[in-house]
Amino acid sequence: MSLWLNTKRVARYGLIGFIRNGFVSLAAVSIMTLTLFVLSGLMVFGAALDATLVQLTQKVDVNVYFTTNATEAQITDVKKMLEGMPEVASVTFVSREEALATFRERHKNDQLTIQALDELRDNPLGATLEVRAKQTSQYEAIAKFLTTQQSNGTSGGSAIDKVNFYQNKTAIDRLTNIIDTSKRIGTIVAVVMGLASLLIAFNTIRLAIYTSRDEIGVMNIVGAGRWYVRGPFMIAGILYGFVSGLIVLLLLYPITLYMSAPLQRFLGTFNAFSYYAGNFPFIFFVIMSFGIALGALSSYLAVRRYLRN
């Protein structure tokens, strides 16, 4: 018998089974919808966590304060050295004038400070380099490098007045801890919830096939090959995954739209709807392939139990 004819028959029986076993299909699709919904929730949660962490990380930097008589060449030397470090994400130069303007702006309501500043003949502020690391844990290495340069007095090192990392160290360490812990907890929660919903979906499909165990027995007796028995159930499993995936993708539209504003108030810049709309192809691929794979694999394993020689 041709492979094409077999495939056509298996696909037709799978579709017929999905439709005629309406109640069983409804139960399986409902549970799989919940599973895929948990998965999509974990994806959005993960993206929100990442966005929030990136946002927090960006608020941390190490400032290198130069002496007021530091030359441009010395500052450029230090800047170049920093930019050459693999840990460094960016280095921003703030000139003495910019530093003074920022200072004035920040203290514009503090007349006493402004007056004291006016009485000084010269700009008391030195130029600054704002250094951002790729990861918060890397600030210490950068700060150590800078202090070594400062004490050695090599290149522009002699022009460094102070590195503010050690003043910020406690705050940075705490943030590093929070970020690490959040990531770890996020991963554990994702794995546990993912596994739990996977088991529930798998068992639901197993129950759905359990109701057909006599049918599988009859198919065995009339001489149907393994794949001819298994195929329609796997097609039905794939349909459970496909329909559930579609439902979840459709539901995510209004849910992310509605949840965006409250989430944004809580998490800052992260916008759930923008994430959903901007990453739709990726989310579609993950949800659909996970749903279809789960449906097909669960059916495969469940039927195997009732397949005899």
Binding site: V222, G223, A224, Y228
Partner: peptide
């Protein structure tokens, strides 16, 4: 079904 598994067209 019995005919299909026997390979009938």
């Amino acid at each position: 079904f019995a005919l299909e598994v026997a390979g009938k067209d």
